[in-house]
Amino acid sequence: MAEQTLANHSDRLNAINIYPVADADTGTNLYLTIRAASQAVAESEPADVGATLAIAGRGAMEQARGNSGTLIAVSISAMAEPLLGAQRMSGPLLAAALHRAQLRAWSALSEPMPGTILSVLEAAAKGATSAESALNGDESNQALAETINGAVWAARAAVELTESQLDPLTRAGVVDAGGVGLLLILDCLRAVILGEFLQEDLLDGLSGYKVQDPNIALEMPEQEGVEVMCTISLTPLAAAGLRLELDGLGDSVIMSAVTEEADPTGAYPWRLHVHVPSAAVALDAIHAVGDPSNVSISALTASVSEDLHDVL
């Protein structure tokens, strides 16, 4: 459901994608990332709710696209942890999963910012926790319904607030694209849990989101530089060192372990994302510590649609 919903909304999400750079691809990136998660689950036979999300998270992480796609992939992987072994979802488990996701997503970014998908995820986690706490650990389906509804409507309020939290969004008169994408994913989760349809009025009134609104991203000045993404196997110490170096070379640095299982050398696979002036700047630093895979390089401008994948 989330895959199809994001496909339907990708054009409008792209149109309001102006932060951290106006490259008009948030909708596309979220769709491709969730599609990878969906395909991973379809090709497996998970044993329980947590295992399903773990498989989805790993599939999403290995093919994650863009800032928002990477943070969504990190969140899915994190949500799996409290759910491992669970045969069904409950209010307490959902609240715990969303709490774990928001902690992991905030820590994955070197410079997390309010007014983004992170704020919306944090609000969803708090909304779920607040609703669940009032139910005193009730594990009934009704309690689960109240918990997921609490998460969705807290996220909706947080999306509306993003317009006033970041100057670029305020000046353009739009809400954050990644935040809207997360809200759509959460409503898909709500619909699946409750056996209902998506809420048709969920996005009503969000600035810049009417069909007739202009494509703000295409009206913004072109951005210089590129987005580099890859997967690389490193020890935690080496990963910390690479993160520090990339922080000095560019911005929007995201690094998160794909799994919690180390190889015999103590290395973990990490998904890496960074914006840099040129690909060579990042690739030189990356190659100095390991051999990357799933490498993609994308121009940070809405006027360039062609990406390079697996270039190394």
Score class of each variant (00 low, 15 high):
Ala123Ile: 03
Ile117Lys: 00
Ala128Asn: 05
Ser130Leu: 14
Leu135Trp: 03
Ser119Arg: 01
Asn141Ile: 04
Leu118Asn: 02
Ala131Pro: 12
Lys126Tyr: 06
Ala125Phe: 06
Ala134Ile: 04
Thr129Asp: 10
Glu122Arg: 14
Ala123Lys: 02
Gln142Thr: 13
Gln142Val: 10
Ala143Phe: 01
Glu111Arg: 15
Ser140Trp: 08
Ser133Val: 05
Gly137Ala: 06
Val120His: 03
Ala128Cys: 08
Ala145Gln: 06
Val120Gln: 01
Ser140Phe: 09
Leu121Thr: 02
Thr116Asp: 02
Glu139Val: 11
Leu118Phe: 03
Ala125Thr: 08
Gly115Pro: 02
Gln142His: 12
Asn136Val: 11
Ser133Phe: 03
Glu146Gln: 13
Pro112Tyr: 05
Leu144Asn: 00
Pro112Ser: 09
Ser133Asn: 13
Asn136Tyr: 06
Thr116Met: 03
Gly137Pro: 13
Ala131Tyr: 07
Gln142Trp: 07
Pro112Leu: 08
Leu144Val: 02
Asp138His: 11
Glu132Ala: 15
Met113Pro: 06
Leu135Ser: 10
Ser130Arg: 12
Asn141Ala: 10
Asp138Trp: 05
Glu139Phe: 04
Ala131Ser: 12
Leu135Ala: 10
Gly137Asn: 10
Thr129Ala: 14
Pro114Cys: 06
Lys126Cys: 10
Met113Glu: 13
Leu144Gly: 00
Asp138Pro: 11
Gly127Glu: 09
Glu132Pro: 05
Glu122Asn: 12
Asn141Asp: 14
Glu132Gly: 09
Gly127Arg: 05
Ala123Phe: 01
Pro114Ser: 11
Gly137Leu: 07
Ala131Phe: 06
Ser133Cys: 09
Leu121Asn: 05
Asn136Ser: 14
Thr116Trp: 00
Ala124Met: 11
Ala124Pro: 06
Ile117Thr: 04
Leu118Tyr: 02
Ser119Trp: 00
Glu111Gly: 05
Pro112Glu: 07
Leu118Gly: 00
Ser140Asn: 08
Glu132Lys: 07
Thr129Glu: 15
Val120Ile: 10
Ala143Val: 02
Gln142Phe: 08
Ala123Trp: 00
Glu122Cys: 09
Ala125Leu: 10
Ala145Arg: 04
Ile117Glu: 00
Leu121Gln: 08
Ser130Asp: 15
Ala143Asp: 02
Leu135Met: 14
Glu122Lys: 15
Ala134Trp: 03
Thr129Ile: 06
Leu135Asp: 08
Ser119Leu: 03
Ser119Asn: 05
Val120Cys: 04
Ser140Gly: 13
Glu139Asn: 12
Leu121Arg: 02
Thr129Cys: 10
Val120Asp: 01
Asn141Val: 03
Asn141Phe: 04
Ala128Ser: 07
Gly115Ala: 08
Gly115Thr: 05
Gln142Cys: 08
Met113Ala: 15
Ala125Ile: 08
Glu132Arg: 12
Ala145Ser: 14
Ser133Ala: 13
Thr116His: 01
Val120Glu: 01
Thr129Tyr: 03
Ser119Val: 01
Ser133Glu: 13
Ala124Val: 10
Ser140Ile: 05
Glu139Lys: 09
Lys126Asn: 11
Ala123Arg: 02
Val120Lys: 01
Glu146Ile: 04
Thr116Tyr: 00
Ala131Met: 09
Ala125Pro: 11
Ala134Ser: 13
